[in-house]
Design a protein around this nucleic acid. Structure first.
Length: 143
DNA sequence: GCCGGAACGA
DNA sequence: TCGTTCCGGC
């Protein structure tokens, strides 16, 4: 517990809802200014150039599928200067998010996870761009 | 593949 | 505190 500077004051919504703690973090964690994995994931999801590597799952809000685990791990390792990074280690880090309620696993679906955010956090995260159907025909949903 | 404990580092 | 590394187990 640290009281030395909450980044964000609890901004109670107009409707009286509260957002999860992680939703208040902007770019860095309170103590460390290292990039967070979940933020990095959102970063990749935001860019179309990585849609063959990781992409939002159509239909489920906040759900995404890692299409190329090796590549995602490589990119993550590159960002963190950890050349030995692989999906096994990366997924362990993702698993730590379960208790933090940032992520959970979509069981049964390979390489598929789901953010616990809801539309209420969207005002805090304008850069999160979930496209349910951005006018493109979805044909990549193959079992 | 996915899970989660354990030791460890920054 | 947030992973990184390693690993036994399912």
């Amino acid at each position: 517990m640290k009281a030395g500077g909450s980044v964000v004051d609890k901004a109670e919504g107009a409707a009286g809802y509260h957002f999860p703690d992680w939703a208040y973090k902007t770019e860095s964690s309170p103590g460390s200014r290292q990039i967070q994995l979940w933020h990095f994931i959102l970063e990749l999801l935001q860019k179309e150039e990585f849609r063959h590597v990781i992409a939002w799952q159509q239909g489920e809000y906040g759900e995404f599928v890692i299409k190329d685990p090796d590549e995602v791990a490589r990119l993550w390792g590159r960002r963190k200067c950890k050349p030995q990074m692989n999906y096994d280690k990366l997924s362990r880090a993702l698993r730590y998010y379960y208790n933090k309620r940032i992520l959970h696993k979509t069981k049964g679906k390979r390489f598929t996870y789901k953010f616990n955010f809801n539309k209420l956090v969207m005002p805090n995260y304008p850069f999160i761009n979930i496209r349910p159907n951005a006018g493109e025909k979805e044909t990549e949903l193959v079992g």
